[in-house]
Structures are given as structure tokens and as C-alpha cells.
Nucleic acid binder design. Structure first.
Length: 963
RNA sequence: GCCCCCGUAGCCCAAUAGGCAGAGGCGGCGGACUUAAAAUCCGCACAGUGUCGGUUCAAAUCCGACCGGGGGCACCA
């Protein structure tokens, strides 16, 4: 045994050689970790294929459990990181003991900016640093004792994985979205089928010409426009500080990059896009079929931003002006129109001179509309989107000098230019209905425009614009009357009229835009695409994966963060011998140019759930039989009904990926579902967001952070103060980080207490979905608990079991079974904090006994096992069992022992407790009423007052109401 | 500005379905053990549930307003 020098749990030389100290814990833990690994204890059988168990069928009950996988960051882990991994491990171990076939593994999201940036900092190849980081992270996590099937662990950077990421990309590239399929819901179909439909004439060729008349490159251009992955020249988010373009989801509301917080500019560039907008409806609708936190579903709904309404056409002298509105029922209240400063029709609308009606507010004091509009546009252009939003909401704008005709009543209404209308949403033009829209009301007041109410507000309404529902008023013409109709009926009526009269159509718009998929970075999956003079061509399947070239400099070309006019440059283009290839794609060897973009790091995380299922398959992305077993719909088991979309049984991770990873992954999965590669049409059936472990940090007078673990706390007159080396410091609450000098690592915890203690502590800190502060000094409580369990079962002197084989006493037995009952329910509901509390309670009871009966010790050990698996295995083994307890059935409570012989009945007078009675559980109302009224303390409390009423809730409560 | 979540002992947190405010842990205090300390063990104290009002026989729990903390959305037509 090693000698210890320091540590709060050091063992003295004087006896107790088998006390559960951090040293003993470490030895037990590492031994069991080796045992599990060599025995393959947590290897999970597949129903077939390479990972099937040839000697046994798979259990029909299965549980597929996933963590959001980590970036192998070079910074290492702090104690906050493993929280979710411990929780999933505890649940997985519990489910396994309940008989489920549990699939649980952990892989690494190893491409992407963090890995690359770390590599750039250290001046080494990203592959090298990434691999080193993975090794280190695996070591730190192995020491936690996670029950993972290591055969199923991979990194997104593995060539065997890249091969399938690229294959899925090509599936998307080789697909189009048939909006008419499946009764109008739409479905992705292979692009070949589109070509056949063009060829046969079944589907008209865009442009009106026949398919046979098109030459090869014309045909390719037509087809390319239908692909779900396509190249387009369009305004994109260019981030010079990162040297790459970004997707909308990676840009914050402030117009900066989510990673690195660099400025982002709109530039027209040729980039790869994914047609996620084709799936907008299904991505919204299917949120109702999955078990996700409402918060995340709301965030996705907001992001997709579906709104139903109508497009209405207004005639102007400059041509038709289309607007989108969600309230076509208020069309009779449209008293003016507004177009965005960037709207293409602005020039045409700008009149030669001011019409008679113009006042100073409308003209802004300019002599002509042209000058007024030019000045306003210049002013608007000088402002960034952020400034437009942050500079208050005072409505500004200017009259164009033109009028439009309201199609419902023929009224001439003025057209304004104003920046409160955004070019990027709807059509960039609105009909303004001040009576029913707050923004329009403000504008109307400012510019002295008429306001007509077309929805009758309630009598008590005293506000300005009324946006609620109510009967329509002032809304009729010769052909249609909405008057008296409420919103939904009025919308239906007016849309019908608009469509019949040719003035508009019912329309749905979305905020969601197509996903910008290419990046100009080195450390990502190359596109399996080559280009010729016409466009992109897929690299043949047998040539996958396309691996990264070695380049002289893999760092991205970055620019001054504010250099909006710079242009992205792909590091892969620096390797001409890689980028230029000769291939025979069917028409003889030809020279092609490889695509030099890389995929965003989201690509790898879009499908990793599938790789866990069938990690060694190099024939198929996943064996359909295996996918159906683990992820297929299972309405009976979940009780979720015929709408069950299938998917991972439980997926735990932070809420920060609510609209990035989780939206992208759903999209990819749906494409694979449409193409028939998977049987589930959602990837993650149940999602759970764990909270964060945060920490206090302390700063001295100069604002410098001081080492948090050396800060002392003093309470004087009820006020708490903190000091470091005698000097007062101030406390802040937030993240754990090196610069804040408040990092605590799992390794610190392993050394000081052992992994089991660390696990117990993290699980007992509070509910899993809540964020909470780390407190190292409180960890000792969890250590004491395990130490007491150990002492109840094992002799600290002899290291052998001390349990007795005598039957347990009645009280012990009742407490045991109540505990089992509660712990099972808590585990099932992931209330690990209360589960641990119940086990502590039971253990504290056992401590008071002269000897601990085996009848209680063994269930306790089994219940502790999911949370503290190593020490539980050790005790189980010392109790005389020669097999791991990993598959031992979780204890089941005997219902007979859950019923108490007597219960305490509380007797209240006017709601205040006055007496407690011991009664049989079967006591009825009459009996309890009599007992209560006969109670001496009750009579004293009544003090001669009469009894108005007696409320009895048998058998636990009687409330006597005096009066 | 709008929407969502959360406020319970000094601290982290419990409290089935409205029914005794306390399960568990940290810290504190007292004691045992020790030459002493640490560790360990035994015991004890501490809040009336952010504030105000309402519903109810009864409210931490339901309703309303406000205060404080966290998060999301933000001129989306």
C-alpha cells in the first residue's frame, strides 16, 4: 500500500488498513475499470452484423442513450464538463440493471474551428493536436468509470467516418425535393427520377423548352438548380476575422460571429447551400411529435418563423407592388404603403415632383422626391442592421411621391420608403394598417396619415392599434363584405376574394433561410466534388473518402476583422497537385478541379447517432435491420401513438445547440428517411438539457483574479466577506476558466476523493436541469456517505464483509423497501439528487444497527451501483458474488412492506396543528372525526367555541373549523 | 418592449394530487476519540417559503400585481 503524505482523507498507520480513503478508492476504481475493459462488460450486442452476440438473441427492450459529443479541446476538462456524462452513465447502468439492452458510447467531434485554432496556437498540424487531445480526454473520462461500449467510439476525423459524411453529402447532392409527394407534404427523391420526369415530359422543363432540345450542359444546369445541395451566388455572411463565411445560425443578433465575436458582413459570394427551407414545414410540424423541452421547441419554431397570410398585389404607376401580410382581413384599413430602402421598385416609385397632398413631414423638406429618397436611402445605407435596431424605434421615412391602389376599394394610398420595413423578410414591402398594427400606428401619427379601424376593439379597450381578435368593421365593397366576421373567418373570406379577383393569394413565409454549408478553413471534411466548366460533379462512391491534402500552411487566411472587402481563400487551394485531378467519370480521362471548400463542423454531428449503431460498417451508412432495432418507431413501448417518429431514446446535452446542431441534424435525418436509408424520421426522440456547473471567482481591489481555492470566508454580523492573503476580495459568479483562477478538474477530484465520490457529488448537487455553483468543500459529504456504506458492509480492519445472515428486523425491512420504491422512481425520472438522499437515509439507519443484515446490505449495494459503480462492484464481490453486478436485477420493493401499520393523523383547528393521532391506515372519516373532537388539545384550542365544520381526509388529516 | 423559467435555513437543495415546511448534504455549535491536530463518530441549533393581495376549512404549491435572478425573441408585416 502506498504511503500518503497529505490529503484530507489520509489513512494513519495505526489500524484501519481497509478504510475507504481516496487511495483505496483509486485502487478499487482502476482495478474495476481494467476488469470491465478486459471482460467487455459493457459491449452491447447488435441484432446482427459484426457486433452481434452469436450465442444469444438481443433483448427486445432496448435503450439508446446519447450525450452531445465533445470537442477534444486542448484545455482539458473541468468538473463542469462531465456532469451530463455522469448522468447518462447512471441512467444507462440503471436501465441495464432493469433488463434493457443499453447502447451508450462516446465519440469526438474533432473537426472544426476550436481544434484548428488550438493547432494554430501551438503551431502543429491539427490532426496531431486533435489526436493528442482525444487521448488525454479519453484518459480523463475513462477514470470516471463510464459504462461505454468502446468498440463504438470514433472521431469525426476518422477516414472511415469521413467516408460516410461525404456519402451523405452526395445523397443530398443527388436529391431534389418533390413538393407534391406524400399528399403535398413533400419528400426528397433521387435526382435521377427528376431527370426521367423531364425526359418523359411528365414534368415540364423550366424555361419551356423540351428536354431533348437541351444540350448536356444546359441539362446539367437545370438539374443543379433542383439539388438539395447546390452552389449559388448570393449574399452570405463573410467573416474576415475568421477568414470564412458562416451560416445564419452562426451569426448572433448583433451581427457578429457566434465563435470569436468578430464582425460579419454581407457579401455576394459563390457558396454551397443546403435546401433546408424545403423541410421548413416538416421541421416545424414534427416538433409536436417529439419529447423535447418546450423551450427548445419554441426556439426552433421562432428560428423557422413560419407565418401564414397572403400576398396582395397593389397597382402603382411603376408596376405592381406585392406585399406579404399575416392580416389580409385588415386590408380595408390599409391607408398607406411602405417599402424598404433597398426595394428594387423604389427608383420607379420616386415621382418627378411632389403631388399636392404632400406636407413637410412627408417630403422631409426636400424640394423633390428624388432628393428626399436619395437622402433617406443614403442615411439608411450608412447604418448597419444593428444600428437600425439599436437607435431606438422612432419611425423615420419619406414619401416617394407615388400612390398605389388598394385593390379592395380602389383608394389611392401614398407609398413611403422607411427602414422599419426590412428587405430580408416577406417581399420587402408592406401595406400599412395603422388601426391594427402598432408600428404602422406610430408611423401614421408621425406622418399625419389617416387611421381606420377595421376590427372593433372591446369596449374597455383604450389603446392605440388594436391587434387582437374582434368583429370586422368598415370592411366591405360591392363583391365582398367582412363586416361582423372574426379574424379567421375574415381571412378565409378575403383570401378567397383576392384569389378570385386576381389580386393576391394565400401564402406562407418563413424566416428560415437555406443553410450555407461551405467554409474556407482547413480542418473539415473536403467536399466530394470536382468541377468542370459547367459545374459540380460528384466524386464516384468508390473514390471516397476524399481526404485532406497536406498543405504548406493549414492556417486560414484571416484578415483584419473589419476588412469587409476582403475575399475568402480556401487553404485547400494552396495544394494545386491535390486540387487538379485527372479522372475518368465515364467519358474518358479528363482534367477536373477539386472543390477546395470544407464542410462546417456541424456536418459530423448531423449523423453520428447512426454511426454508434453500426460503427464498423463500410458497406452501408447503417444496416437497416440494426437501425430499426435501435431507432425505429416504437409507439407501443413509449405509448406515443402512431405518430411516433422513432429516434434516440434519450439525448442529453446543453441548451446551446437548440437551433444549430439540433436543427441541422433533424434536416439530414429527414433526408435519409425520405431516401429510405433509415426508418426513423426524427433523430432524437427525447431531448433533455442539463444545467451547467458554474463557479465563484474572486477579484482583488485592482480587479485581478486571485486563486479561488485560497480565498477565505468570514461571517460578521450576518454579512459574508471574502479575503485572500488578508486582503478583501469581491466575489463573482459565472463560468469556470483559467483566467478566472477558479478551475477545478476531475483529476483534482480523483486524487482527493476518487471517481465514485465525484460522481455521487455531481449527482446530489441538485436537479440535473438546473445550473448551480461548484463547491469543493462540500464534496466531503459524498465521500463520507460512501465511507459509511463501506463500513456498514466491510470491516476497515480485515477488509472482509461484516454483514450478518440473520433476517432483518421489521423496521429495517420497511425502511429498505420504502427506499427501494423511492429510488427506483427517482432513477427512472432522473431525479438522482433525491435518489442519493434516500440511499443516505437508509444507510444512516443501517449505521445505527449493531450488525447490518445482508438482506439490507445487498440491495443497498445494488442501488448505489449506478451512481458509485466501482465501490459497489468491490462490495458486491466481497459479499461473495463472482460476477459483475452490472447485469444484476435492480432491487424491487415488496408492496406489502410499503403499507404502514399505523399512520400519523394530523389534527388541525382552523388550519393549525393541535394534535397527532396514531391510527390504522384503514381508519374511516367518522372514526377520525370522533377521535379528533375527543382530543384534549383540540378541545383546548376550541376553547368553548362551537364546531362549524370538520374536514376529514382519511387517514392523514382532520381539520376542525370553529365558529 | 414581448414570451418562458426560477426565488424555501448562512449555502446547495427536498416537500406525492393544495393537507404536519425538512429528506439529504455543506458550513456552524457542543461532545467523544487524540498529547495535540486532522480524519472519524455522536448530538444540537437555525427558515415559515422574494413582497403585497386574492381563492380555500387549509397555499411553498392555485390566481393577480410587483421586486430580484436566469434565458429566449426583438421593427418578421
Amino acid at each position: 500500500m502506498r504511503q500518503t503524505q497529505t490529503g484530507t482523507t489520509a489513512t494513519g498507520d495505526d489500524g484501519a488498513p481497509f478504510r475507504y480513503t481516496s487511495e483505496l478508492a483509486s485502487r478499487i476504481e482502476q482495478r474495476w475499470q481494467d476488469h470491465w475493459e478486459t471482460q467487455g462488460t459493457f459491449n452491447t450486442p447488435n441484432p446482427e452484423g459484426e457486433l452481434a452476440d452469436p450465442d444469444a438473441d438481443v433483448p427486445s427492450d432496448k435503450f439508446f442513450l446519447m450525450d452531445m459529443f465533445p470537442y477534444p479541446s486542448g484545455k482539458g476538462l473541468h468538473v463542469g464538463h462531465p456532469l451530463g456524462y455522469i448522468a447518462t452513465d447512471v441512467l444507462g447502468r440503471f436501465k441495464r440493471m432493469c433488463g434493457d439492452n443499453v447502447l451508450h458510447a462516446l465519440s469526438y467531434d474533432a473537426f472544426g474551428l476550436p481544434a484548428e485554432q488550438y493547432a494554430v496556437q501551438t503551431g502543429q498540424h491539427p490532426r496531431k493536436t486533435t489526436e493528442e487531445n482525444i487521448v488525454n480526454m479519453r484518459r480523463q473520462l475513462r477514470r470516471l468509470g463510464l459504462a461505454h461500449d468502446d468498440r463504438r467510439s470514433f472521431a469525426t476525423t476518422d477516414p472511415g467516418y469521413i467516408r460516410w459524411t461525404q456519402w451523405i453529402f452526395l445523397q443530398i447532392f443527388d436529391s431534389w425535393y418533390d413538393t407534391e409527394a406524400d399528399g403535398g407534404r413533400g419528400r426528397a427523391r433521387p435526382i435521377d427520377e427528376l431527370v426521367k420526369e423531364f425526359d418523359s415530359g411528365e414534368r415540364p422543363v423550366p424555361g419551356g423548352r423540351a428536354w431533348v432540345e437541351l444540350d448536356e450542359s444546359e441539362r446539367r444546369r437545370v438539374v443543379d438548380e433542383h439539388r438539395l445541395a447546390y452552389v449559388s451566388e448570393s449574399p452570405v455572411n463573410w467573416c474576415p476575422g475568421l477568414g470564412t463565411v458562416l451560416s445564419n445560425e452562426e451569426v448572433t443578433a448583433e451581427g457578429r460571429s457566434e465563435r470569436g465575436n468578430f464582425p460579419v458582413f454581407q457579401r455576394n459570394l459563390r457558396q454551397w447551400m443546403m435546401r433546408i427551407t424545403a423541410y421548413a414545414d416538416r421541421l416545424v410540424d414534427d416538433l409536436d411529435r417529439i419529447d423535447w423541452p418546450e423551450k427548445v421547441r419554441t426556439m426552433q419554431r421562432n428560428w423557422i418563423g413560419r407565418s401564414a397570410g397572403a400576398t396582395v398585389r397593389f397597382a402603382t404607376d411603376a408596376g405592381d407592388l406585392d406585399v406579404f401580410t399575416t392580416r389580409p382581413d385588415t386590408l380595408f384599413g390599409a391607408t398607406f404603403m411602405v417599402v424598404a430602402p433597398e426595394h428594387p421598385l423604389v427608383d420607379g416609385l420616386t415621382a418627378a415632383s411632389w403631388p399636392e397632398e404632400t406636407n413637410d413631414a412627408w417630403s422631409g423638406g426636400h424640394p423633390t422626391p428624388a432628393e428626399a429618397v436619395a437622402a433617406y436611402r443614403a442615411q439608411a445605407a450608412a447604418k448597419t442592421d444593428v444600428e437600425r435596431q439599436t437607435e431606438g424605434r422612432d419611425k423615420t421615412g419619406v414619401f416617394t411621391g407615388s400612390f398605389a391602389v388598394n385593390p379592395v376599394d380602389g383608394n389611392r394610398i401614398p407609398v413611403f420608403v422607411a427602414d422599419y420595413v426590412l428587405m430580408g423578410y416577406g417581399t420587402g414591402a408592406i401595406m400599412a394598417v395603422p388601426g391594427q398594427d402598432e408600428r404602422d400606428w406610430e408611423f401614421a401619427e408621425r406622418f399625419e396619415l389617416p387611421i381606420v379601424r377595421t376590427v372593433r376593439p372591446p369596449d374597455e379597450f383604450d389603446g392605440e392599434a388594436y391587434t387582437g381578435d374582434g368583429p370586422a368593421i368598415n370592411s366591405s365593397n360591392d363583391q365582398v363584405s367582412l363586416d361582423g366576421l372574426y379574424k379567421d373567418a375574415a381571412i378565409a373570406a378575403i383570401v378567397e376574394w383576392l384569389e378570385k379577383a386576381g389580386h393576391g393569394t394565400g401564402t406562407t413565409t418563413y424566416r428560415l433561410r437555406d443553410w450555407l454549408f461551405s467554409r474556407q478553413r482547413y480542418w473539415g471534411e473536403p467536399f466530394p466534388i470536382v468541377h468542370d466548366e459547367t459545374g459540380p460533379i460528384a466524386v464516384p462512391d468508390d473514390q471516397l473518402p476524399v481526404l485532406l491534402p497536406e498543405v504548406p500552411d493549414y492556417a486560414p487566411k484571416t484578415y483584419d476583422a473589419d476588412d469587409a472587402d476582403s475575399t475568402p481563400e480556401s487553404p485547400l487551394a494552396r495544394s494545386p497537385e491535390w486540387a487538379e485531378v485527372e479522372l475518368d467519370l465515364g467519358d474518358g480521362p479528363k482534367r477536373y478541379r477539386r472543390d477546395t471548400n470544407t464542410m462546417p463542423n456541424w456536418a459530423g454531428s448531423c449523423w453520428y447517432h447512426l454511426r454508434y449503431l453500426d460503427p464498423t460498417n463500410d458497406e452501408q451508412v447503417v444496416d437497416p435491420e440494426i437501425e430499426r432495432y435501435w431507432m425505429g418507431p416504437q409507439p407501443q413501448r413509449r405509448g406515443s401513438g402512431p405518430q411516433d417518429p422513432g429516434g434516440v431514446d434519450l439525448y442529453i446535452g446543453g441548451v446551446e445547440h437548440a437551433v444549430l446542431h439540433l436543427l441541422y441534424a433533424r434536416f439530414w435525418h429527414k433526408v435519409l428517411f425520405d431516401l429510405g436509408h433509415v426508418s426513423s424520421d426524427e433523430p432524437y426522440y427525447r431531448l433533455f438539457n442539463q444545467g451547467y456547473i458554474q463557479a465563484y471567482a474572486y477579484a482583488d481591489r485592482r480587479g485581478q483574479y486571485v486563486p479561488a481555492e485560497q480565498v477565505t470566508e468570514a461571517v460578521t454580523d450576518g454579512a459574508t466577506s471574502y479575503s485572500y492573503e488578508g486582503e478583501p476580495v469581491s466575489r463573482e459568479y459565472g463560468k469556470m476558466g483559467k483566467s478566472l483562477k477558479n478551475i477545478v478538474t476531475p483529476d483534482d477530484m480523483y486524487d482527493e476523493f476518487g471517481a465514485d465520490t465525484f460522481r455521487v457529488y455531481e449527482m446530489s448537487m441538485g436537479p440535473l436541469d438546473q445550473s448551480r455553483p461548484w463547491e469543493t468543500r462540500a464534496v466531503i459529504g459524498s465521500h463520507r456517505f460512501l465511507q459509511r456504506v463501506w463500513r456498514n458492509v466491510i470491516s476497515e480492519e480485515a477488509g472482509a464483509t461484516v454483514v450478518s445472515d440473520e433476517p432483518a428486523g421489521d423496521e429495517t425491512r420497511r425502511i429498505l423497501h420504502r427506499t427501494i420504491d423511492a429510488v427506483r422512481a427517482d432513477m427512472d425520472a432522473m431525479r438522482f439528487n433525491t435518489a442519493v438522499a434516500r440511499m443516505i437515509e437508509l444507510n444512516n439507519h443501517l449505521t445505527k444497527l449493531d450488525t447490518v443484515p445482508r438482506e439490507a446490505a445487498e440491495p443497498l449495494v445494488l442501488m448505489v451501483a449506478p451512481v458509485a459503480p466501482h465501490v459497489a462492484e468491490e462490495m458486491w464481490s466481497l459479499l461473495g458474488h463472482d460476477r459483475s453486478l452490472a447485469y444484476e436485477p435492480f432491487p424491487v420493493a415488496d408492496p406489502a412492506l410499503l403499507v404502514d401499520e399505523t399512520v400519523t393523523c394530523v389534527v388541525q383547528v382552523a388550519g393549525k396543528v393541535r394534535d397527532r393521532l396514531q391510527v390504522p391506515p384503514s381508519a374511516d372519516d367518522d372514526m377520525l372525526r370522533e377521535l379528533a373532537l375527543a382530543s384534549e388539545p383540540v378541545q383546548r384550542a376550541l376553547d368553548g367555541q362551537g364546531v362549524r365544520k370538520v374536514i376529514v381526509r382519511a387517514p392523514k388529516l382532520v381539520n376542525v373549523v370553529p365558529g
